[in-house]
Amino acid sequence: MNFFADYNNLALIALAVVSGGLLAWPTISRSAGGKTVNATTATQLINKRGAVVVDIREPAEYAKGHLPQARSAPLAELANRAASLAKDKSAPIIVVCQTGQRSSKAHAALKQAGFGEVYSLEGGVAAWQQAGLPLVK
């Protein structure tokens, strides 16, 4: 009991708790944004399971280059257009933005619209290009 009464030890305990929380933060924040897939796994979902790719970037960004067969649905319009994205709500959906930052909002909107299997592309279109995969203009 004397261990907890010493203020130096309390400071060390507080430091350990804070540093543990900071180490766990990336995992906690990633799971809050939903499931993510890398470019390789996304390609497998598209080719083997017929995943629908939804590009949530603005039309000008989409026009500069997008994933093959990606459907444009800007984030601001996503809630209204969710029903028309896929006929089967159990089909996998891959949400794509430029860097992967905006896709967590879209992920939540699509889950709320009733889609069961929604993924965000880690790193977005930038990671797709970095992996050497093609874009369509």
Results as ranks from 00 to 15, higher is better:
residue 55 D to R: 02
residue 91 A to V: 13
residue 47 N to I: 04
residue 42 A to P: 00
residue 70 A to E: 00
residue 38 N to E: 09
residue 83 A to K: 14
residue 58 E to I: 12
residue 9 N to K: 10
residue 26 P to R: 00
residue 112 Q to K: 15
residue 14 A to W: 13
residue 23 L to A: 06
residue 12 L to D: 04
residue 78 L to I: 15
residue 62 Y to W: 03
residue 12 L to H: 09
residue 130 Q to M: 11
residue 98 Q to N: 08
residue 81 R to C: 09
residue 44 Q to N: 09
residue 32 A to P: 07
residue 17 V to P: 00
residue 3 F to D: 06
residue 37 V to A: 05
residue 71 R to S: 05
residue 133 L to P: 08
residue 43 T to I: 13
residue 129 Q to C: 03
residue 61 E to T: 03
residue 104 S to Q: 10
residue 91 A to G: 08
residue 33 G to S: 08
residue 94 I to V: 00
residue 83 A to V: 07
residue 14 A to T: 11
residue 72 S to G: 09
residue 28 I to T: 01
residue 16 A to Y: 04
residue 2 N to D: 15
residue 87 K to Q: 03
residue 32 A to I: 04
residue 31 S to D: 05
residue 81 R to Q: 08
residue 113 A to K: 14
residue 79 A to P: 09
residue 95 V to N: 04
residue 92 P to S: 04
residue 115 F to Y: 15
residue 105 K to A: 07
residue 133 L to D: 07
residue 56 I to Y: 01
residue 114 G to P: 14
residue 58 E to S: 13
residue 81 R to A: 09
residue 40 T to W: 04
residue 9 N to C: 09
residue 134 P to L: 01
residue 86 A to T: 03
residue 74 P to K: 11
residue 57 R to V: 06
residue 56 I to V: 01
residue 29 S to M: 04
residue 9 N to G: 07
residue 114 G to Y: 12
residue 132 G to E: 08
residue 70 A to C: 02
residue 62 Y to S: 05
residue 95 V to C: 05
residue 6 D to A: 11
residue 5 A to F: 10
residue 124 G to Q: 02
residue 115 F to T: 06
residue 88 D to C: 07
residue 5 A to Q: 12
residue 136 V to S: 13
residue 49 R to E: 11
residue 29 S to V: 06
residue 7 Y to R: 15
residue 68 P to A: 02
residue 118 V to F: 08
residue 28 I to C: 02
residue 90 S to L: 09
residue 58 E to D: 07
residue 49 R to Y: 15
residue 129 Q to F: 01
residue 69 Q to N: 03
residue 19 S to M: 12
residue 47 N to R: 00
residue 60 A to G: 10
residue 98 Q to A: 10
residue 82 A to W: 06
residue 78 L to M: 10
residue 95 V to L: 10
residue 27 T to Y: 07
residue 112 Q to H: 15
residue 24 A to Q: 01
residue 89 K to C: 05
residue 128 W to R: 15
residue 128 W to I: 14
residue 39 A to Y: 05
residue 46 I to T: 00
residue 78 L to K: 13
residue 17 V to I: 03
residue 55 D to H: 05
residue 18 V to N: 08
residue 91 A to S: 12
residue 110 L to N: 09
residue 25 W to N: 06
residue 129 Q to G: 04
residue 1 M to D: 14
residue 26 P to C: 03
residue 121 L to Q: 13
residue 37 V to P: 04
residue 2 N to P: 11
residue 26 P to M: 02
residue 112 Q to A: 15
residue 45 L to V: 00
residue 88 D to Y: 10
residue 69 Q to M: 00
residue 8 N to G: 12
residue 74 P to F: 08
residue 132 G to K: 10
residue 23 L to R: 04
residue 104 S to F: 15
residue 84 S to E: 05
residue 89 K to M: 10
residue 6 D to K: 15
residue 115 F to C: 12
residue 125 V to Y: 05
residue 10 L to E: 14
residue 21 G to R: 00
residue 71 R to D: 04
residue 31 S to G: 03
residue 80 N to E: 06
residue 41 T to W: 06
residue 16 A to E: 10
residue 108 A to E: 14
residue 81 R to M: 06
residue 57 R to L: 07
residue 24 A to N: 01
residue 37 V to G: 03
residue 53 V to C: 02
residue 114 G to F: 15
residue 11 A to D: 09
residue 85 L to P: 02
residue 115 F to V: 11
residue 64 K to A: 10
residue 69 Q to C: 03
residue 22 L to Q: 02
residue 12 L to I: 06
residue 103 S to P: 08
